[in-house]
Design a protein around this nucleic acid. Structure first.
Lengths: 207, 207
DNA sequence: CTTTCAATAGCATTTTAATGCGATGTTATC
DNA sequence: GATAACATCGCATTAAAATGCTATTGAAAG
């Protein structure tokens, strides 16, 4: 039996969620409020939730801010976002803020219940469309017009690891000038002119 | 009606999947093979699949290699991995290789069917435990012993964007020496001594 | 009221990185 | 057998970054 808090400013939806979820054996709704402020105010030892189902689009707040405020008070709770927004930026901000799941508001109540029960088996509830966005995040956005050679790629990886030119030369047993030459070529192919830009591109999956 | 290919070396499991999924209205199994090699060999215009359900642990191959081989031939197909492995590294390699979904083998047949149908609505099938791993990827691994100040954080973000000290000074309307000072402090707090390391740490979620 | 810390700034020095130019040998490809 | 792409190396110069040291101001904490 998990304690559940619902934070949602749409009275109708909140009422429905409360009524439905509170009837389930797995959950007990100890809080049902319309804002983060109300949530933090009402919070006490008795009603401390294991799971917080929270709207993201609460007035005057960024969504990921809300999560941070909650996780700050309840670091071991699972915060599940409930939202109509499926844009990549919002999703990632929330995930970085510590959200344990991300559900779309158009999900049926039964499905929401099912998703929430996934938390108890160590999983993360995520609507399929959100999962798609997240997966796409990992995939290289576009093929390079000018692909890097193997050696050049080695050197990019070394840069990401924080190695200096000198250290790279030692690692691959080539001269410092050769490292310079390779890096020149990498810069030309990637159309950049600093180490930092190469690292950023690599870690963002653009290489 | 989607064409489906099953690549799985466990004969029993493959048989079950084939029999079950081929009976569904949504799918037609046009291929059922036990290796990537067999798959690529049998592949032709007639049986070209929209969805490939593939084992990851095929003998002598890395899993993500398999995906790349498939996506190379069929870039518009959806490759869904079916595996017992839930370690982060494997998952991310497969996602980077172009997988559209990632399911655990212990899922019931009905659930696998349900997950696969998610593809047709533009979603990504992902077992909850996998989703958890993926979400955790985005979340800062550990709290910094020495947290960065706001200004320092601004400057870290600017470094990630590829700005030079001079550009950062202009951007925030402070002197070059102040930028230097902040960066010094960031290096001390993060225990590094180059721009590149800061960028890598930031993009890996360690800040 | 002192101590601490963030933010600002300056100056000097050394190290590293970025770039221009030229060069040789290998391996594919046409 | 020319052409192109890759990998290697050298030298020189300029630009940027890293670091050592010092110092002022304001705000928060004790």
């Amino acid at each position: 039996m998990k304690n559940l808090a619902i934070i949602e400013d749409d009275e109708e939806l909140r009422g429905m969620l409360y009524k439905f979820l509170n009837h389930q054996d797995e959950f007990r709704c100890t809080m049902s409020v319309n804002s983060i402020e109300a949530f933090l105010k009402e919070l006490n030892e008795e009603n401390a939730p294991d799971i917080i189902l929270s709207d993201i689009g609460l007035p005057g707040r960024q969504g990921d801010e809300s999560i941070r405020m909650i996780k700050d008070k309840l670091p071991n709770s699972d915060v599940v976002m409930l939202t109509v927004h499926d844009d990549a930026e919002r999703i990632f901000k929330c995930l970085q803020g510590g959200a344990s799941g991300y559900l779309l508001k158009n999900s049926p109540l039964e499905e929401i219940k099912h998703y929430l029960s996934i938390l108890s088996i160590g999983g993360s509830p995520m609507s399929p469309r959100i999962a798609r966005k997240v997966i796409e995040y990992f995939q290289p956005k576009k093929k390079l017009e000018k692909p890097l050679s193997e050696r050049e790629y080695d050197i990019v990886l070394a840069l990401v690891e924080g190695l200096s030119y000198k250290m790279i030369a030692d690692k691959y047993d080539i001269s410092l000038d050769t490292v310079r030459q390779h890096i020149r070529n990498v810069y030309r192919k990637l159309n950049v002119n600093s180490k930092g830009e190469v690292i950023t591109k690599k870690l963002r999956g653009e290489i």
